[in-house]
Every structure is written in C-alpha cells, then in structure tokens.
Simulated scan of single mutants.
Amino acid sequence: MAMRSPLPVRDGVGATRLRVPDEGPWPTVGAYMAERFFHLDPERLLSRFDRGEIVAIDGSALSRETPLGVHDFVWYYREPPVEKQIPFDVEILHQDADLVVVDKPHFLPTTPGGKYLQNSALVRLRNALGIPELTPIHRLDRATAGLLMFSTRPATRGAYQLLFERREVEKVYEAVSPLPADWDPAAPALGGAAFPLVHRNHIVKLRGQVCVQTDPAREPNAETLIELRGFDDRVLHTLLRPHSGRMHQLRVHLAELGAGILNDGFYPELLPETPDDFTRPLQLLARELRFTDPLTGAPREFVTRRTLQEAPRLSGA
C-alpha cells in the first residue's frame, strides 16, 4: 500500500517524500539534508525547519536539532523554481467520475520535475479541475504531444493502471521523419523491410544517461508495428503501434531504421541541450487509445484532435 502523505496537495503539487538514513556521519536530519542538497544554501534550507515546513509521517514538524534515526521519512513542499511558461494549453477531451482524457501539447511534461512544476499537465489540471487526487495513469515524454489519461479517484485507479501493465490498451502514434536517402516510392520500405513491418530490439535505460541504449545480444523486450501513412518529396509519415512501452521506444526504433523523427535532439544522435524552440516540436503524436473499460465492460476509444505540422498534406503512397 502506498504511503499517504501527511501534507495535502498545495497549488496542484503534492509534497515530496525523502527517505532519511538510520545512521551515518550526520548528527541531525537537517545536517543530512544540507549535505544531500549541497547545491542549496544551507542556512536557507535549515530555516525551513524553523518555519515548521519539514514534517514527519504524523504531520509533526521537525526541528534543526531532530537527530538522525528518529524518522525514516520526511515530507516537504518543493520550493517553486523560476519557470519558463509553456505557451500551450492542455485540452480536455473527456471527463467522468473516474477518468480525464486530455490532449497534451508538445513541450509540456506530464508531471512536475526538474525545472517544471506549475508548467506540467498534472498540476495545470489539478488546479483547473479542483481535483487534488488527479493522477496520471500513464505518461508521455515532454517532447511528445497527444492523448494522456488521468485517474480522478484512488478507489478505481488500480483497475485502469492494470490495463497498461497487462498491455490491454491499444495505443497508436504517428510520426514524421525526413525522407530516407534510399527511399523508393515504387517499393516503400524501411531497413530493407516492406510496410507494414515489425521492429524489435532490447532497450536498456542506464542510470545517469538521458538516452537509452540497445543491446543486440539480448532477447528483444521492445516491439513496434510500423505502418506507412504517407510521404512526399521531403518527409515520411508513419503510424506506430507499440506492443511494449519502453522508454523512448518509438524514437529509437525509427532511428535504427534510418528514419529518426524530425526535431529529435536525442536519436539517432544526442545533440547539445538548447532552449526550447516552440516552432520546432518533435514530430511524434499519441494519436489513439482503445480499451475495454474495466468497470463497465464497455469499449472506449479516444482520438487526438492535434496534428503534426510537418505531415505531408497529400499521401505519396
């Protein structure tokens, strides 16, 4: 059972939980946190104890002198970062007693993290809908736009999460890639395989690395069905049906086939980090979600209203 926070959601953001070691070279919880968060001014951090902002599981405030080993966990609110506003809105497509389905724009993260707090789909929706219990059932990369599903009630959340864990949700994406140099309009193919094609590999996420790695020596753990949607003299437009849900799977699979997605700064080559260019979004869109509702047994289908700006206007297929 998940550990319940002693602090309520505030401004759409839940409190952060930190595990505190039982023993170590730190005499107090405050000393441990000052070393762990070495990039922060120590006195500014310790002053938060004085204001009662760091609490134990029962909601009681810790002091600067609280010794190490008394509490296994502490909770606190993250201090809001100075955020760059993401100038795109989340569009609500569906809302009922259990689910909220939205169209997420490019550049907006699903959940708070790093330099994004209020500029996340979760926090914006909690504030807009007044539902502090709202929780994402799955996630999209910050760079990816499209369908995103949230649970409104803890009582029914697990039933919907199981759909994704059991791969019982049909997900369809679309992507736009530069037209491969060896493209043959008379015999459309990627990586030497005609459409539709299935690409499989083994994807590994290594700690401390932003890009995933692939291991050809290991059994595949990622699989995508790739269909041709169209092309012109510049770009290739594909539909992607992932059977698995590995990190960056679709981006990696198209890159391996010589059709890396337009405006992807990670694959096939990791480019230096630059400020967001809102005129050049990653050309990847979560297009469709289909599943049988675990509560009612009724079929559910959701389709994005968004489009990819670089998609060919006329099919070349």
Rank of each mutant, 00 (worst) to 15 (best):
A128R: 15
R48I: 05
N263I: 01
L7A: 09
R251N: 11
W183A: 08
A2C: 07
V9N: 14
E174P: 01
F195K: 06
T224I: 09
R51H: 06
V176F: 10
R300H: 06
E227M: 07
L225G: 00
A121W: 00
L129N: 09
Y76K: 03
E256A: 13
L122P: 01
G130K: 04
R124Y: 02
A255R: 05
G130L: 05
I203H: 04
V210R: 13
P154S: 01
Q283A: 14
D22A: 15
R157W: 00
D58N: 15
R78A: 13
R313T: 11
L129H: 06
P216T: 03
G113K: 09
L45P: 08
G69Y: 08
T152L: 12
R251I: 11
V9T: 14
T214V: 15
P216W: 02
L271S: 07
V100S: 03
F302H: 08
Q309A: 10
Y76H: 09
H138L: 13
S60N: 07
L7C: 11
T144G: 09
S244I: 02
G30D: 06
E288P: 00
R229W: 04
L236Q: 03
A259T: 02
A222N: 02
L254N: 02
G14A: 14
L45D: 04
A217K: 13
M149N: 03
H71D: 09
E53I: 07
S244V: 03
F302D: 04
L197Y: 11
E79Y: 07
N201Y: 05
Q283N: 08
P216S: 06
P25A: 10
I86C: 13
R167L: 08
G146S: 05
R229S: 11
A56Q: 10
D72K: 15
L140E: 01
Q213T: 11
A255F: 05
L45F: 11
E269C: 04
G297A: 09
H243T: 06
A121F: 01
P154I: 00
G69P: 14
I86F: 01
S177A: 14
H243P: 00
A286N: 04
D264V: 08
G113P: 12
A155Q: 13
S120A: 11
L271I: 00
T110N: 01
P80K: 14
R229P: 00
C211N: 13
D232M: 13
L225W: 09
A175R: 04
F150P: 09
V210K: 12
D277K: 08
P87L: 12
E43T: 12
E170H: 13
W26E: 04
E227Q: 13
G114D: 06
R19F: 05
P8R: 10
A159F: 13
A222V: 02
L147K: 03
G230Y: 12
Y76L: 15
P105C: 06
A2Q: 12
K171F: 07
V235F: 10
T292A: 09
I86M: 01
H237E: 12
G191V: 10
D11T: 00
P185S: 15
R142M: 10
V176N: 03
A56L: 11
R287T: 02
V74P: 07
R313D: 12
